[in-house]
Write a protein that binds this DNA or RNA. Structure first.
Length: 1003
RNA sequence: GGGCGAGUGGCGGAAUUGGUAUACGCGAUGGACUUAAAAUCCAUUGGUGUUUAUCCACCUUGUGGGUUCGAGUCCCACCUCGCCUACCA
């Protein structure tokens, strides 16, 4: 064959691409009587390097699916866009001193051209670019809806900080202590951050996976990332101290085996206890040292455990009653559970190692191992655990948890690894967060909340701590002091202690008094010379309680002082004068406070009484809970939004990025936007006073968390997408992307979609019906393609030399779609030869020529089914077999050839269209119906029937597919070879598999 | 350490519910065409042995066992590699 026998891919491909575009062949119409099919592929980040050969692999695969679905009569949505915000463009902009917007625009144009040269059937009229203000207007709008729904808060916190990129990183972006992007070791920096309450959705993000069709490993990854564990929260008393240590454990069955406790270095108690311990200097030194350790050091030195004992501090094991030493050690992480553990060295690897190193007692409580030699984490019989001895450990978990709850030491609890999503970025190239900080509004709305705790407790313990955190998330000022001598309180001491907070209080303030603190609160308010907003009493005590009787009933509780507590008459009139409103919470099962108490207060207090069910005395004791949303609600009065932070009004969206001279992030951690005075200074939309814009921008994840919704209605100027369009197109029927996005992008976008579903803005709770993943394309050496290794293959070169059709087919043929496959430039030749053969075969086509119907229908069946299952490589090989068979004939029937072209058209759309038109068709092949197969015709009439002896192949012969056992046995009678082989042996059995084989079992 | 997945020719890889292992392609070798090369076409191509006629026998899907008439496929143990994850209490 000469050069002229190779088809001219350049002119053919250019011609059809132009014609298709002119005819708008792939434009999708919304209102259609046809069944919809939404086929989605992750949109690319338009890097300066251009398209990678990995991109076309998944694009072609989904293009094939989309084209086939279209030919099968579906209304297909197959869109494409660009995810263009983010660090690479910004870093490049800084390097070449240009505007990232200009750079991005250029990159997008290049990408679009490259994608178009592949002949993909995207509906380009629906393209979205996340950096386009018309697009990010709606990203900001959605952000505001979620903000108004109370899903965001701001908190000063140590964030992961990359000293090289000068950017805060989400936990998820730090891989093994290193910056995901640049590989530099990360440190910590304290910054105020906007944070999404994704943890609120943790359970639903797990549960709803049951309703969707994702690859198993993708579901597993999602579940693992959320990391749910069932266990119990248990409270440990400290000997002679008011403080308590809360721990989370998944092994309550080992409670009796806890021999020491460990606090993480960041735990608040470490600082509080410093004055009580003998070796405070040593402890301080240790805490400081571990703060300076990077996450990498703390995790990498996995096996070398360090720690310091808090000398003089003893915790009490509520189960065994034994005293236990308390340590601080950085193998306990502040970010998981409560930041403290009960250590059970006999049945936990880490605790065992620690106990061995520091010579701490090891107490076996589950039999089955040999704890002298090794820890034992398996199941077994419970021993050394009093009343629980003899139980199976699995049963023990349930029984001991129930006992803990009954005795008031804790409660069953679920814990998640997933942490809230840090959303702020201190960078230029991202969507501005559309919020305005207004000091006037803040002063007006901010509440000062004074929490006065009860006996034997401290300021931020239990629900006080939870409530304080929640209020601070909204920007309120919380004063939750540790009251003096809480074990033996004295009213006068308490009142004089509270004096210091007097000046902070005003008509907007709230005072919460719990238990004994309730009495203190009333006394304190009655002496104020001003009015406060609200008094919230939570199960307050009262001198009416018979403390002597109580002490008899509860001999272990240190309540001696209670009846000594000085309670002069409370001047109720004065309290009413000094408060706007009083709310009184009590519980129907408070065994601490008799019913006579609320009865008494009902008589004397003009309060709003609220009865809550089963909250005991509002503490962990006796099964109480840690969170009391009712009390929280009473303070914020329905406002879920942080105070003094005003959403930009919808009519002012988008908040566009201003042009700046300098894109570099600052060393202070502020975004470069902070330096642009004209932009930062605005009037508050609420009070019209002077205010400032938020200068943080959104992370790269924002735009990609909802782009699939915008595709449904991309030009809508009034809504992010119309209800009608969303209802028709959503959910996505097929979503494909890389494994690298199966945790974060999927989790974040599912979270946004669920939140919008709760706001009734989208039609269902899950965005993606089916999710599959593609494998990576590796370099010829089997390594990842990278510039530094110099092994990158440029798709433009391949397309220029061999054509887009060849490129597409080769990417499909190279191996299983889901697996990583190395690129092989020589392998492309085989596919190109196949297409040349197809082109040449056209000369042999005769309208009237006979053809092999079985071959045609077999191939239709194979290709159809393979595409359905994403087995593109074997579909290509079926087409190759068909072409080879047809090539062996002198003439080719036109009908057979047409069917071949139809099957070829999703893979090689240009050549298929060229030959289709050359056959005389007026309409595009891509608008033609997908061929059907006849199952009977797809079956072979004759097969190679196999004769085995003891399962080993001895003979084969062509026979009809439906050959009977008798016929085969007769055949054997006539077969000298088989007869000879079995002549001297005893035939025990004959197994006949219809249409396949006969196995003769001999001895 | 945990989770998921994979080990099949010289290479990429095929193989329905257990039923002819190595489809399809690359590469290689030989031949045709050519002054020659490229391209193309034809033939051969898992291994070993015997025989030189290419008929035959045996072996072969990481290793070792097991279940079965029959195992690449199912079960058990082990080895190797890849990906994700990691002091998650």
């Amino acid at each position: 064959m000469s050069e002229t026998q190779k088809y001219d891919h350049q002119s053919i491909e250019k011609k059809w691409q132009e014609q298709w575009e002119k005819q708008k062949l792939y434009a999708t119409k919304d209102d259609s009587s046809k069944k919809k099919f939404y086929c989605l592929i992750e949109f690319p980040y338009p890097s300066a390097d251009g398209l990678h050969v990995g991109h076309p692999r998944s694009y072609t695969a989904l293009d094939i699916v989309a084209r086939k679905k279209r030919m099968e009569g579906n209304n297909v949505l197959f869109p494409m866009g660009f995810d263009a915000f983010g660090l690479p463009a910004e870093n490049y902009a800084i390097k070449v001193k240009k505007n990232p917007a200009d750079i991005t625009k250029k990159n997008v144009e290049r990408f679009r051209l490259q994608l178009k040269s592949l002949g993909l059937s995207f509906d380009w009229s629906r393209e979205v670019v996340t950096t386009d203000p018309e697009y990010y207007k709606w990203t900001q709008w959605i952000f505001l809806q979620l903000y108004k729904a109370g899903l965001l808060y701001q908190k000063e916190m140590p964030i992961n900080w990359c000293p090289s990129c000068k950017i805060g990183l989400a936990n998820e972006e730090v891989v093994a202590g290193k910056c995901e992007r640049c590989g530099t070791e990360t440190g910590k920096k304290n910054l105020k951050q906007w944070i999404f309450k994704i943890t609120q959705y943790a359970q639903r993000l797990i549960d709803d996976l049951d309703t969707v069709d994702y690859l198993k490993k993708i579901k597993t990854q999602q579940i693992n990332w959320i990391g749910k564990s069932d266990g119990a929260k248990v409270q440990f008393r400290l000997k002679d101290l008011k403080y308590r240590i809360n721990v989370f454990t998944t092994r309550p069955d080992t409670l009796f085996g806890a021999t020491y406790m460990v606090l993480s270095p960041e735990h608040e108690l470490v600082e509080k206890l410093l004055s009580e311990i003998g070796n405070s200097k040593e402890v301080e030194k240790y805490v400081k040292a571990s703060q300076n350790k990077s996450d990498l050091e703390r995790t990498d030195l996995a096996k070398k455990k360090t720690g310091v004992e808090l000398k003089g501090i003893k915790a009490i094991n509520p189960a065994s009653g034994k005293e236990m030493p308390v340590w601080v050690a950085d193998y306990v992480l502040i970010s998981y559970g409560t930041g403290a553990i009960m250590a059970v060295p006999a049945h936990d690897e880490r605790d065992y190692e620690f106990a061995k190193k520091f010579n701490l007692p090891i107490q076996e409580v589950i039999s089955g191992g040999d704890i002298k030699k090794e820890f034992y984490t398996g199941e077994g019989k419970i021993i050394n655990s009093g009343q629980f001895d003899g139980l199976n450990s699995k049963e023990g978990i349930k029984r001991i948890t129930t006992w803990i709850e009954k005795e008031g030491y804790g409660k069953a609890e679920v814990n998640y690894k997933l942490r809230d999503w840090i959303f702020s970025r201190q960078h230029y190239w991202g969507e501005p967060i559309p919020l305005i900080h207004c000091e006037n509004c803040k002063e007006r709305e901010k509440k000062t909340v004074l929490i006065i705790h009860g006996t034997g407790n401290y300021g931020r313990n239990l629900w006080y701590g939870w409530l304080a955190d929640e209020l601070e998330k909204l920007g309120h000022e919380v004063v939750a002091p540790d009251m003096p001598d809480p074990m033996e309180p004295n009213l006068d001491t308490w009142l004089s202690f509270l004096e210091q907070y007097k000046d902070k209080l005003n008509e907007n303030s709230v005072i919460i008094g719990h238990s004994l603190g309730g009495v203190a609160a009333m006394q304190f308010i009655s002496k104020l010379k001003k009015k406060i907003g609200k008094l919230i009493l939570v199960a307050p005590t009262c001198r009416d309680i018979d403390w002597k009787a109580y002490a008899k009933k509860h001999p272990n509780d240190p309540t001696e002082y209670q009846h000594k507590f000085n309670q002069p008459d409370i001047p109720y009139d004065q309290i009413h004068n000094n408060t706007e409103k009083i709310v009184y919470f009590h519980s129907d099962n408070d065994h601490y406070i008799p019913e006579s108490v609320p009865k008494h207060y009902k008589k004397v207090l003009k309060a709003d009484f609220r009865m809550l069910k089963g909250r005991s005395h509002f503490t962990i004791l006796n099964g109480g809970a840690f969170t009391f949303p009712e009390i929280f609600e009473e303070i914020v009065e329905g406002s879920q939004m942080p105070v003094g932070i005003v959403p930009v009004p919808e009519k002012d969206l988008p908040v566009e990025l201003p042009k700046v001279k300098n894109y570099e992030p600052t060393d202070t951690g502020e975004s470069p936007l902070a330096g642009i005075k004209d932009w930062v200074n605005v009037k508050c939309p609420k009070c019209k006073g002077d205010a400032k814009r938020e200068t943080d921008t959104m992370p790269n994840w924002a735009g990609s968390s909802w782009y699939f919704m915008r595709y449904c209605d991309p030009h809508n100027a009034k809504e992010f997408a119309s209800k009608k369009a969303l209802k028709y197109w959503m959910p996505v029927d097929l979503y494909n992307g890389g494994m690298e996005h199966t945790t974060l992008h999927l989790l974040y976008s599912r979270f946004w979609y669920k939140a919008l579903y709760d706001l009734k803005m989208v039609p269902q709770p899950e965005p993606y019906q089916k999710r599959i993943s593609h494998g990576m394309v590796l370099a010829e050496d089997g390594k990842k393609m990278s510039k530094s290794l110099g092994n990158v293959v440029n798709p433009d070169d391949v397309i220029k030399e061999y054509g887009a059709d060849t490129m597409r087919m080769y990417e499909m043929f190279m191996g299983p779609f889901a697996e990583a496959i190395p690129w092989d430039t020589k392998g492309i030749l085989g596919v190109r030869r196949f297409l040349d053969k197809a082109n040449l075969l056209f000369e042999k086509v005769k309208k009237s020529a006979e053809f092999d119907r079985n071959l045609v229908h077999k191939t239709i069946k194979k290709v159809t089914e393979d595409i359905n299952e994403f087995h593109f490589n074997t579909a290509v090989s079926a087409l190759m077999i068909m072409i080879n068979e047809m090539n062996n004939q002198k003439e080719v029937g036109q009908e057979a050839f047409e069917k071949f072209l139809l099957l070829l058209s999703p893979f090689a759309p240009h050549l298929a269209e060229e030959l289709w038109k050359k056959l005389g068709h007026k309409e595009s092949i891509h608008l033609s119906p997908w061929p059907h197969f006849d199952s009977n015709l797809a079956k072979d009439e004759e097969i190679e029937f196999v004769i085995q002896i003891n399962g080993k192949l001895k003979d084969k012969s062509m026979m009809p597919t439906d050959v009977t056992e008798e016929d085969v046995l007769q055949y054997i009678e006539r077969n000298e070879k088989i007869k000879k082989l079995i002549s001297d042996k005893q035939v025990i059995n004959k197994i006949f598999v219809p249409g396949k084989l006969l196995n003769i079992v001999v001895k």
